[in-house]
Design a protein around this nucleic acid. Structure first.
Lengths: 153, 153
DNA sequence: TATTGTTATACTCTATAACTATA
DNA sequence: TATAGTTATAGAGTATAACAATA
């Protein structure tokens, strides 16, 4: 049962390949786990939460910028923003210099829901993180910006 | 719904909470990036690839075990296995001791596709990983088992 | 009765293509 | 013509509920 042995001829690129084929399922499985554990009371999808968090910091971004940030196509972001607008968490207005653009701004209600759900939204993940060792958390703190860099590459 | 008492939860664990709210979008965005970059020639979804990789190592697993591993519900795994069986990559047979179970085994054709697509499937990710520094790759190697632990928690 | 898996059904997320309006 | 966003449509992935077979 030693199929791991086909990895033992370890050149530099084969080690990287092994990292790739380990990282991919890890990301996939953790993402599904997080989707299962998200707060059901705040009726926000993971993308909606992420968009609101970005707007909480940036105040106002174009729809295209949000689509690029979240790595989705513009029609997908249009639908996400529609849902957030219906709930009163964001507003649309035309761009000032370029009126083709649509500027998305967070509302007071949107800020409130971010504050209210921030702790609870990540409750499951926070608890699991607290069960890790300090060293393991330190590894993850270092890993997050690298994962973001890969996502943006 | 009231937003009153939420910030009190952040006192001791604000650092962990910050890690949680950084890790979640990073995982989400990277997963979408990986989905965009997967090999279009091998007609395997990310879940199918992951299932075949698990069976490549384990030879045979129950449908329930595969569902638990991939963090999906049994009906979802049934559909994934149906597709893999249609393509001749896996076979079904009833469990020997417990005939309610369904044992999923990888076929020779399944092994071939794993070998044939392993390098190409992760080509985009492998290239991005090679562009990182050795230190960054080392961080990710340490992070992968921690991410898996979180996914399984 | 409880458990393993399947079938039926529906919902969420996402994409591509075609369109509108600006540039 | 080119670009930013929307509308229309379709596909992939997933879940829950009801069911069948077996324990």
């Amino acid at each position: 049962m030693t199929y791991a042995n086909d990895m033992s001829a370890t050149q530099n690129s084969s080690s990287t390949a092994r990292l790739a084929s380990g990282l991919r399922p890890a990301v996939m499985r953790l993402r599904r786990r997080l989707a299962n554990e998200r707060d059901p009371e705040a009726n926000l999808s993971m993308t909606s939460s992420s968009v609101l968090a970005a707007l909480f910091t940036a105040d106002e971004l174009t729809l295209g910028a949000l689509a690029a940030l979240e790595r989705v196509q513009p029609p997908t972001m249009t639908r996400t923003i529609n849902a957030l607008e219906d709930d009163g968490y964001v507003t649309r207005r035309p761009g000032e210099n370029d009126r083709r653009q649509v500027l998305i701004a967070i509302t007071d209600k949107g800020r409130q829901i971010v504050l209210a759900t921030r702790a609870r939204r990540d409750e499951w993940l926070s608890r699991r993180l607290e069960e890790l060792s300090a060293d393991e958390r330190a590894v993850l703190r270092q890993a997050v910006p690298i994962l973001e860099k890969l996502a943006t590459a």
